[in-house]
Design a protein around this nucleic acid. Sequence first.
RNA 1: GGCGGGUUGCCCGAGCGGCCAAUGGGAGGGGACUGUAAAUCCCCCGGCUCUGCCUUCGAAGGUUCAAAUCCUUCACCCGCCA
Length: 421
Amino acid sequence: MNLIEDLRWRGLLAQSTDEAALAESLKKPLTLYVGFDPTAPSLHVGNLVVLLVLRRFQLAGHIPLALVGGATGLVGDPSGKNEERTLNSSDTVSEWVGRIKEQVSVFLDFNTSKNPAKVVNNLDWTAPLSAIEFLRDIGKHFSVNQMLARDSVASRLEAGGISYTEFSYQVLQSYDYLELFRRYNCTLQLGGSDQWGNIVAGLDLIRRVEQGSGHALTVPLLTKADGTKFGKTAGGSVWLDPEMTSPYAFFQYWLNTDDKDVINFLKVFSFKSHAEITELEKSHIENPGLREAHRELARELTTLVHSKEVAERVEAAAKALFGQGDLSQLDLLTLKSALSELPQTKVSSLEEIPTWVDLIAATGVVDSKSAARRIVKEGGAYLNNEKISGEEFRPSKNDFLCGKYAVLRKGKRDLAAIELV
RNA sequence: GGCGGGUUGCCCGAGCGGCCAAUGGGAGGGGACUGUAAAUCCCCCGGCUCUGCCUUCGAAGGUUCAAAUCCUUCACCCGCCA
């Protein structure tokens, strides 16, 4: 099975220019790129879809370029947005560029001699360009009529308007493709399906300026069975940065995937073979309660994004802490490593121990003390897996397992740790 | 630049001088049922030193015993005209 067929099987093809020609080009190593704009200090699981497709291309022998949008991030992509976004300062953007470069690098191989990956920043070729050069050398090739017709622009015009800044975004992205075509003979740009317009605009530019040709390939927007947005939880996006989404929470996010989505997610995110996925699908249908497919998904993604050690640690932590397990059976070392994955707070052994409400508020698991009180009132408050009641409830020194740790739980699965120091 | 309409809690959206921490929906949270799933049902959903107090209805002033609701100025958005 070739790469294109594999992508189709995984449901990863949305649109492409001449597919037969692309399949032909893919018989030899080809250089391709995907752009990521720094709109936050970290990528999130939504970005993972296309990033992993880039990885699939490298595994298939092609040369991947990961573009981090130091320039485009300063301007703002109107695609998929119904209102103008506020500009971030250039200091902020350049800091985010640095972080995202590192994150992207985890998924690509830079050391192979055959088809090493490269990370590029479009600020490198955009910053030196003068406004006049930009208008004469690039702008001249764009028809405003066509630019206005682009979906991202048209919908914004309808929704109330667009600034000249964001209107120009497609020109910048097109120029990126042209520049990568020139520098690296890059002839394929991948992106989310919302990027189609920007990508073909780049192809047009390459054709006009260099009389060259290239390909465009987009990946469908990932949808969930219940219609909610992929990659979001109550706390916001699921980030790749362990400081922003703990590996424990990351693992749990995948583990809690809706049954209806889990096989689809395995196809999209996992590098397992078709046979392995089909096998998991079978076991999932036969015994969904076992959640073998969920577990494999969570393990593989946590391993890929964090590491094998981390994945094993967070899974062990979940096992030790979850449900009705008797926490007092755990030894100090197991307890300590399991709890290290959770939100924590410390209390002094010299002072009176604060109430459950104050403690859980201190860990950040609830937004406010009022919220914490509500949880207690509603019967969702636990200490060491034992339900507690009364807003004034205070743990005693004896509640600290091994004399050192206590486990707070809110609802069924929100855990936090307290350390006695 | 002129005229008209708008800005309400995480989002959408009622309210148009006291009964307003503010109707309703969505999202979210807790419980029941389960499989750390979905669906369903019940409850909750500004904060706090919590029978009370404090801060919210674009911002700042003002009128009033009393304002999200009236007046003034400013900012932003939308529409029509220049």
